[in-house]
Design a protein around this nucleic acid. Structure first.
Lengths: 211, 211, 211, 211
DNA sequence: CATGAATGAGTTTTCATTCAT
DNA sequence: GATGAATGAAAACTCATTCAT
């Protein structure tokens, strides 16, 4: 029993190390050696726990996607079991993405890296497609329930997620501060959902320079 | 006469070869050898015309940005000299991006690649920031003139461009067909600009899977 | 036990291989490939044990200097502990250089190569300067003790070492035989030290052509 | 007629450019491109005027040796025709080397570079041997005439020249100032020639640090 | 004479991966 | 499990040299 756990812990350490490496370099520029050094272990160990460098990435992507998915699902289920309204659920959904993903520069960077690899790596591409499709379907469902008059929920869901990505990339590249990013996201989401409350005064912060 | 041109032609061939390479692989995975093979020349020639591999990329990015920028400016100036309305200019601006960039899967792929490199490459990052800032400022100006009641033109401009990017990436990764991509873009742009005409029925195409 | 030693042994083999390579070619002309071939190992292994080609050289120079320095110090300390006179120590000092360095064509060649690199390589230059300064200071000390009337011991020390180098290079380039080299050295050293015994008849050999 | 001259001038420019390059880099590190840039001409031109890079060096060495040889001979002949004593001729000989070669850090550096190449390059080696043998023979002759009691003029000549080289290299590597170098040389030469005048107080300067 | 273009061989270095211990 | 050692393939880049014009 302790045996199996050891392996899991090692794998965990490796995935975490990759996460930290991706803060600094692209996946292509990150060598197995560096991941190992970051994890404080021998490079050969990585090949003991994973088939290859790409396998590490695959597991990493699966892990980061699944954990976020689960976290979101758990939250939504909690709210639902409390009898919350569809609107509240939708708000939670958007807020989750805003706060946890797009608003988190580091995670956003990692997501961006994953998208990049996905472009040329079949397995990663499939995984990315799958998870995003699930998210968009879930979002479309919520939209149907929470915004009755909405003309084309799937398209709006796509738009919302694409917007998320776009803003996320911008925030990373231009060094937006979190406040401004969230402000922008909320404002646009309101617009896209044609809500009356879209009355924000954009009090909000300016883009913060990197240095 | 043919003398001086040879150099320019070769440089052009190299940049075009890189463009084609980026259809298949990321910049990091693309070797100088491959660019040379694609261009049908000796690898050393690339180092004869460019200081380094990164220099090729830098020139490539500058070229692709500048040529698009110039094309857009030319078009807008033509319209303006014809006495067109600000609304028409704005439409042209958005349409240019929709049709020429975001709607062109290949170019979009290349743009995405550039964004990725920009994350870790100072020079490329500065270039990307500069061109995007120019585009967003130009767009904000047009918004001021064409959409008088708009609360925060710069933020809306940022949103429009970010949306562009987001949809662009999605279209590449999910293999949207061009019609659907344009449909989606137009619809969202109308929404963001709160126009009355946002009446589209989105009859439009479904996402076409790649495989 | 055999574990830890492997690394040291390999490093030793590499340094020895470089030594042999320097018999045939200059450092600049010697490629990592050749060092590896000479050492009978995969070229990449050299980069496993050393940071770079220059690092190999640096360690090589340090090693060759330090080992000679230590050897000399050991000998002098032995003599001193036996209560030998300053004159005997001085003789040992000069004899050590004559026999072990200047008189050893191969080592002299290597020393010359090191001087050459030192001209354009900061680290090597500093190392060479340091070791030679140490040697000259030690020699000046001995001169003070052994040759009381000597006017300017440091200058004489410099002269003796410079002479050493000059004769060494000549012996390599003109292919002096060892006997002639030593003869010449001894004679000149006596002269520089204005000793009475400088009575040698230079019975000694002629320069032997290389080819 | 102007034709032939043009070629000579070009060749001269190339040799001068190589001289300047050797101030900064070793011959091995100096590329044909750099020589050409230094000479302000197209690299291919160098191959028009010389068979190869090594041919440039060969001509360079021949030129620098011959011109110095001729200059020295001219001076000595002048003195001889004026009826000067052998001692005066010897003094002129030594002084020429001291002032023009060993005391000129730049030229000394170049000589050192030549010695280095000579170690591994047959043609250069032969040339170097030849010129040095000539110099040493001429010096031995002068010694016979000027220092009657000298035991072994050839060996002393060798010693004097070797000392020259040794001090020269030291002055380059340790950055001796010219005054100190000349002081040292003169002092040692007096000693080797056992002259009474060897009474110098070595007032002279210390070694000057490079930076 | 002069030059821009072109090339093939070679350089140092990095890296994912394997393996014996 | 864990590690140091080892390797083959490939990377970017340099360079002396040749050649057509």
């Amino acid at each position: 029993m302790g045996r199996k756990k050891m392996g899991d812990q090692r794998r965990r350490e490796i995935l975490d190390a990759l996460y930290r490496c991706l803060m600094r370099k692209s996946y292509g520029e990150t060598s197995v050696r560096e991941i190992a050094r970051e994890a404080g272990m021998n490079p050969a160990l990585i090949h003991y726990y994973f088939k290859s460098k790409d396998d590490v990435l695959l597991c990493f992507v699966e892990d980061i996607f699944q954990s976020n998915k689960q976290l979101l699902e758990t939250r939504l289920q909690e709210l639902e079991s409390l009898g919350c309204s569809a609107t509240a659920l939708l708000d939670e959904f958007l807020s989750f993405f805003n706060q946890r993903i797009t608003g988190d520069t580091r995670l956003q960077k990692v997501f961006f890296e994953i998208w990049e690899v996905a472009l040329h790596n079949r397995k990663i591409k499939e995984m990315v497609r799958k998870i995003y499709r699930e998210w968009m379907e879930a979002l479309a469902d919520l939209l149907r329930r929470a915004v009755p008059g909405l003309e084309d929920p799937p398209a709006t869901a796509t738009a919302l997620v694409a917007l998320q990505e776009g803003i996320g990339i911008f925030s990373v590249l231009f060094g937006f501060n979190k406040g401004y990013t969230l402000e922008l996201l909320k404002r646009l989401q309101e617009l896209l959902l044609s809500r009356e409350e879209a009355r924000l005064q954009t009090a909000g912060g300016d883009s913060g320079a990197r240095h």
